[in-house]
Design a protein around this nucleic acid. Structure first.
Lengths: 330, 330
DNA sequence: TTGTATGCGTTATCAG
DNA sequence: CTGATAACGCATACAA
């Protein structure tokens, strides 16, 4: 592997000059530039990033931590992050944790080791002190999630969105409405639960049925099995994720229930699968791509030392009505 | 940010000694160890990876390039790679290219800059010379893909799998069978196409109907629209990806066709969505997790300089029969 | 405009 | 067992 010394030797100049040509900084004549470029070409030279970044004390790389790469919900978010990063000359590396704290630590270590300049935690389920610890290591942005602490974050108003989803079911005439919640350690699970409860309360509905899942399809199936035994059985369901909603629909159909006639269902996220399931799923749409863009913009702003704007950025959501909730189909 | 010098000063030893304690190599008394550890603790010291890796000329990091993070097919593969990497003390970073050559170059650059030790290219669509160029930069393993060149690779026998999928439709009595192929620049698209054609040939069927998509749901819909106008219309379809198969089913149903009665469908990959769509999709199952494990094992073997075993590793596949193809449901 | 020399943070070699 | 020192590859302050 050729180094800058080899290039310098072949071009008959000093390493400083090669470096100047390489970075574009510092002065040099067109002629030396030519000589250097020729040597680079001949040697097929590629600067060693470790050396360069050690010297510059920055890598122009950010790490994005995802709890579960299986979840298609994140695809668009990542795309937004990558587009924004690329536009600013940053490289994105993805870290998948499988909801495993140990693995997250692995990626935080990359930040500690200064192999990345900043980190974005997506829909993370860490307690606040842990996030604060990460914040001491380097710049952090939370995506799809906010926390009561002083963290930069980008998300929708989960409580309000859940309120609207539940209210929609109430407007369609339902009185017994169940909720499949996300894991309680995730802040946004609580937010969605509270939105559901507020909708019931404001419409004078006392009865509630809440089960806790982990956002997965399988947990939706499992909760549905339990729900089937409720007596009287709820006529509607608001699930905190599309996957749980879809799991519920599959399981309900398996047991001979008609969706939406016997059970109206609303999900959350609008993943691709939501349009594939039969019937297509009514759900909350998040501006996924935009969340990614905003989160990355925030992080880069911090990295460039500019004063950062709003601490918590709230983006707008919508309810897309498909056939799984009955009433007037689109 | 504390450095090794700060630790050395506080502990009253040399940096060499700190390093010895840190790496566990070299001799030191329990007492110096204690002093060093205390200083590390107090200063909240974390070794700088750039310095360390520059010195050691290795990062124990591998980069995995994916063409499309949206594709759930890769989820399990990545999980296998990560588990295997972790077990050997390696860190995996993911690079998403969105099928964009420019972006892939971005990640290859990480290898060039020596910020990763090796690279795995997943279901890549590069022409062979390009892969050879990458191979000159550092160790490469191809996953879900093989190429005629001398590349380490892990995949199933795509041609044979496609042959079996198509043969299954023929056994069910179909004579007019369409194929939705993947992009022609992807080697495995050709393999699957050839398997389809071999099945027709071996069963004495002359007529074929082939459309080229890009593995996406949308392209499946688009090809189905064209297929609907064929006269006489094929009674069965073998798609080179589950997403295309599902797109075709949705579109067929939209136009009043019954699946599998009017159109029998077989897909490829067995993504989660395959069980969600109505009717559930008959498809080729790849040992996704195992492909990931094998690919990573290969790369690590190369990195550790051990002689590598088989160049091309072929893993077994199966055909899982669900309801989308008619005949005898499972 | 160019070269010399230094330091980024670490580890390994070599003396002691 | 420990310390001084060189080296990894590069960028930059300073001198020429």
């Amino acid at each position: 592997m050729a180094t800058i010394k080899d290039v310098a030797r072949m071009a008959g100049v000093s390493t400083a000059t090669v470096s100047r040509v390489l970075t574009g900084n510092g002065p040099f004549t067109p002629d030396t530039r030519r000589k250097v470029m020729e040597a680079i070409e001949k040697l097929n030279y590629q600067p060693n990033g470790l050396g360069r970044y050690l010297r510059k004390q920055e890598t122009r790389t950010v790490i994005v931590v995802l709890p579960d790469i299986t979840n298609p919900f994140f695809s668009q978010i990542i795309r937004g992050m990558e587009d924004e990063a690329l536009a600013h000359g940053f490289t994105v590396i993805l870290g998948n944790t499988d909801n495993h704290a140990d693995r997250q630590r692995n990626y935080v270590k990359l930040l500690e080791e200064r192999r990345a300049d900043g980190i974005i935690l997506t829909a993370v389920r860490n307690p606040q002190p842990e996030i604060e610890a990460i914040q001491k290591i380097g710049p952090v942005v939370l995506a799809c999630e906010y926390s009561s602490g002083m963290f930069q974050s980008v998300a929708i108003d989960n409580e309000q969105a859940a309120f609207e989803a539940t209210s929609h079911l109430i407007r369609l005439g339902h009185k017994r409405i169940a909720h499949f919640a996300g894991p309680s350690e995730v802040v946004l699970s609580g937010d969605r639960l509270h939105g559901y409860q507020r909708a019931l309360r404001e419409h004078g509905i006392a009865e509630q049925w809440v089960g806790e899942g982990d956002f997965s399809l399988e947990s939706g199936r499992r909760l549905m099995q339990k729900l089937l035994q409720a007596n009287p059985r709820p006529t509607a369901l608001f699930a905190a994720s599309d996957k749980m909603a879809i799991g519920a629909i599959l399981e309900a159909k398996l047991h001979g229930l008609k969706v939406p006639d016997d059970l109206a269902v609303v999900g959350f996220d609008d993943i691709e699968m939501a349009e594939v399931v039969d019937p297509p799923l009514t759900t909350i749409v998040q501006p996924k791509y935009q969340i990614g863009v905003e989160a990355m913009r925030k992080l880069i702003t911090m990295l460039e030392g500019r004063p950062d704007p709003a601490l918590q950025t709230i983006l707008p959501h919508t309810l897309v009505i498909r056939r799984s909730c009955g009433g007037r189909p689109e």
